[in-house]
Design a protein around this nucleic acid. Structure first.
Lengths: 351, 351
DNA sequence: GCTAGTTTTTACATCGATGTACATCGGCTG
DNA sequence: CAGCCGATGTACATCGATGTAAAAACTAGC
């Protein structure tokens, strides 16, 4: 049998459609008796509201999109878990979208998937440029995760530069001097990797260690194979580091593997530290020291901020046009991070 | 300025709303000149179709939901990547939903999130019972991943029992006799873990090895900490296995860590094999032997099957009522798997 | 019993896009 | 040049739910 509509429920209960709607939406002025009759009709027919109709009328879907480069980079998966939890508490549904670190996909996401059917977007950009963020007429409210790409957008991040400086400082404190930055790159840009590279250089400079551009091992993406390859290549080419600052844990885990294959001991010969504090680093051999961002806080702040923007754009009851408003000044929110020291820098004795 | 509607574009271009709609939808009989004029108006106004209106009219959203227990279990993240890719090729958008292995959430997903706004669902169930799958009036078409829970539902899986038998056989072939199944459980049920446990027992029995129920190390969930704890506890309690069949790679990676901490050599003292072939197992120390399901095939078959069901339920052009149809017989699709042998069973020399 | 005030319920328009059915146009045939 | 045809374009109804405004039902007070 076809799915029942509100009309069917109304007929079945002998009331008007609007009354059924009122019951569904807990409108105050409905007599108990009517309410009961309608409820029964709903149960009997197995009626459930049609989101399309409601969405059209209300102008809101209650869905927000989380756009990440790759879901199978554990950091993003763990972050997604937190965002979902946080959104759920505010009765928002999260649509996760994988951009594949592809500019076209990220742009499509920014535009609301070519159709404004999400109320807002939390975007973790990799390939976007600052220009892409301008001129977003009609796009839904957006919060960026990671480094600020451009004035005028809300964003949530840790202090990447400071964190990298601390992590590098930790390595230096262990007496290491020949430190490579795996994933490091030219630090003039705006992204997260650039900020971390800046922190790396700042720490070297503070310690009076000369900086050699060859200390940056570039990678194509931030995954285990890339970390393993970059380190293997460096060793083959004669590099003799005594420490590695890996710009994320995946690179670090790949690096651990490469060091192992080359018979290099960690941390005795080479100390290794990463970023993100993913679960894999707590069970690797050796366990991985890392910069742990407060992921729950990132998620909480991002969802909160986005919800504020949504309400601002459409009014608390919806029925706005969903366009970006420029009234509130953009927010830069920094959340906490901390160093988590494990075997890959501190050795086994610490356990 | 408010978001433009089709009406605004029509006025701007000096044509009717329907003509604009025809252009948007690539209807054949529109003159080139009209098409161009409309396109220009669309660009100038920055018009994008409103999904709510289209959805209401067409009865389809082009969105399917993928429901997994936990996104930060890499297997599901990797699977999600494949499903997304596959769906994209069929111009479907994937909404990922995390059920937290929670029955209430899985039920909500089955019901289409309390509102039929997804066209179909791919569900990887953990906590559902067969009963939950009955009586799904009005719910969208659904494809299950993993073992068959109940006649009458479409599902896609590998031959879990057979795969477990092969994996166990491999361990036995290495001369191992004292094999523990990490994550193993009472094998009378219908889930994936149960099927793998059956395969484990079958292999033991074929090899004439006596089965001791203590060989099953139960876990609360299938993550690294659980694997590490289960194995650590077994060792503390005096177990002296020479091989571990771990029901997924996360458990195996946790087990590797626990063995390492107890000074047990892998694979010399204990051989370890897992399931899923996640990326972490290719970089662990030692690398992890595993049963590799053809994830791309799982995704492909699942999306394909789901799309067929959707068309069947609503007609190729949409505008159906989205209710479950019982006309086509339910499909049981088995996809390929293979053993991937790495250091954790074969040792270093193989590389 | 009637009026004023309040609560409950209803009819109707509306959100935006698109299918249906029909009107119009230009060109071609005989 | 009438008549016909296919190609284009349009008016209108429709999808389902809900806001608005007003009618209906009820209550209380005199």
């Amino acid at each position: 049998m076809a799915r029942p509509r509100i009309k069917d429920v109304a007929r079945h209960a002998g009331v008007s459609e609007k009354t059924v709607s009122n019951v569904i939406n807990d409108y105050a002025h409905v007599s108990d008796r009517t309410r009961r009759v309608v409820r029964e009709a709903i149960d009997q027919l197995g009626y459930r509201v049609n989101l399309a109709g409601r969405h059209l009328r209300r102008g809101r879907t209650g869905i927000i999109a989380l756009v990440v480069p790759e879901l199978d980079i554990p950091y993003f998966a763990e972050l997604a878990r937190h965002v979902i939890r946080e959104a759920e508490q505010r009765s928002l549904t999260v649509l996760i979208h994988q951009s594949g670190a592809d500019r076209a996909h990220e742009l499509a996401a920014l535009a609301g998937f070519g159709s404004a059917f999400v109320d807002g977007i939390i975007l973790s950009p990799l390939a976007l440029t600052a220009d892409d963020l301008r001129d977003r007429v009609g796009a839904p409210p957006t919060v960026l995760l990671g480094e600020l790409l451009e004035e005028g957008a809300d964003h949530v991040a840790i202090d990447n530069e400071g964190a990298a400086r601390e992590a590098t400082g930790h390595l230096i404190g262990l007496g290491r001097r020949a430190i490579l930055a795996v994933g490091g790159r030219d630090d003039s840009g705006l992204g997260t990797a650039e900020a971390r590279t800046r922190g790396f250089r700042a720490a070297l400079s503070e310690a009076g260690i000369a900086y050699d551009p060859a200390a940056l091992l570039p990678v194509d993406s931030f995954r285990m194979p890339d970390g393993a390859e970059a380190v293997a290549r460096a060793l083959r080419e004669g590099a003799r580091p005594d420490a590695l600052l890996c710009l994320n844990d995946q690179l670090a885990l790949g690096a651990l593997r490469a060091l192992h294959e080359h018979g290099v001991r960690v941390p005795e010969d080479v100390a290794v530290i990463g970023f993100d504090d993913v679960e894999g680093g707590r069970f690797s051999v050796p366990t991985l020291s890392t910069v742990a961002p407060d992921k729950a806080a990132v998620a909480k702040v991002a969802v909160q901020l986005l919800q504020d923007r949504i309400e601002e754009a459409t009014g608390p009851e919806g029925r706005g046009d969903g366009a970006v408003s420029v009234s509130l000044s953009p927010q830069d929110r920094i959340v906490a991070h901390r160093l988590v020291l494990r075997e890959s820098t501190e050795g086994r004795e610490r356990r």
